[in-house]
């Protein structure tokens, strides 16, 4: 609740504490899994030798244990996330916002046109752009694949009976290539947008602080900002008319093709901050 309207520069909630913990668990287990996983596959690599040198002669055994612990952390975190998106208000909203839309195709097309110089302006993105949706679902996919194959390899003596040795070979191959794909995707896609990206350089601190500045909102999430401000305007208009209970139940807005969705705003997590109500307009990318 640090970012306040009162402090001059206004801050916008991006990730709640709960979400930041989830993100932290994911990123830490992910990094550990990468190190301990590729450490097995490339035992002669220089960085593996350094780690082995530091840890000592039991490095290999430690590697296996740490990899399993990290895998366990990631699976538990994923299961919690599943619970989160199924049973919490904010979680439900989150997955709804991440859900791919037809708009993404248009956004992607326009974005590419913009990037290659055929368009003057960037499409405006809401809470999540196609970039972040891609990221999210890639992580979902990767976690499922890695979790499944990892479990098979972990309990090889049990699974060997059902899978035969070929099953183990398949699991090994999938686990390995998916790991490469996932780490490269994180490196190239995620790390670019949260580190190297000139808009946020040197780092997008939302995953630690939980907030974005107005400037960042303008650059990355202009539609969301517009919406927030729109709502605020509405709110301030009828401030006195609206009571707390109404605040909890602000009406959902029309999503593409006229479909309506209800956005539940978690009261607890939005005590001070303005809620992230989003409304997608059909024509939001076409502003020139």
């Amino acid at each position: 609740m640090s970012g306040q309207v009162n402090t001059g520069e206004r801050e916008y909630l991006r990730m709640t504490f709960n979400e930041r913990i989830q993100h932290f668990l994911l990123l830490s287990s992910f990094i550990v899994l990468i190190l301990t996983g590729f450490g097995l596959k490339f035992p002669e690599a220089f960085w593996v030798k350094w780690i082995v040198f530091i840890i000592g002669e039991n490095a290999f055994e430690a590697r296996g244990i740490v990899h399993r612990i990290a895998g366990g952390v990631m699976i538990v975190a994923s299961l919690y996330h599943l619970y989160y998106i199924l049973f919490t208000v904010r979680g439900k909203q989150l997955v709804r916002d991440f859900w791919p839309k037809k708009q993404d195709i248009t956004d992607f097309k326009n974005s590419m046109l913009y990037l290659i110089g055929k368009r003057e302006t960037r499409p405006k993105f809401g809470r999540f752009s196609y970039i972040e949706r891609m990221e999210y679902w890639a992580v979902v996919w990767g976690t499922i694949v890695m979790g499944a194959t990892g479990t098979v390899l972990w309990f090889e003596n049990i699974f060997l009976k059902f899978t035969t040795n070929e099953g183990m070979d398949i699991a090994t191959a999938v686990h390995y290539y998916e790991a490469i794909l996932a780490s490269l995707a994180i490196l190239v896609w995620h790390f670019y947008f949260v580190f190297l990206n000139p808009d946020v350089y040197p780092m997008n601190k939302a995953s630690f602080k939980g907030f974005l500045t107005r400037e960042e909102m303008e650059k990355e999430h202009p539609l969301e900002l517009e919406e927030i401000e729109g709502v605020e305007t509405e709110e301030s208009k009828g401030m006195n008319e609206l009571d707390d209970s109404k605040n909890d139940n602000i009406e959902e807005l029309i999503i593409d093709e006229g479909k309506k969705e209800t956005d539940d705003v978690s009261k607890k997590e939005t005590e001070v901050m303005v809620k992230n109500k989003t409304e997608f307009k059909d024509n939001h990318g076409e502003d020139e």
Binding site: M112, Y114, L115, I116, G117, I170, A173, V174, Y177, E178, I180, L181, L184, A185, V188, W189, Y192, F193, L196, N197, P198
Partner: peptide
Amino acid sequence: ITRFYMFMIFGIIGFMIFHNVLDLRR
């Protein structure tokens, strides 16, 4: 599976690099 992943890795990561280089430039 190996073939599939090779395709995925080169295709997807290649696209990502392409996309981000353009993004950076822009």
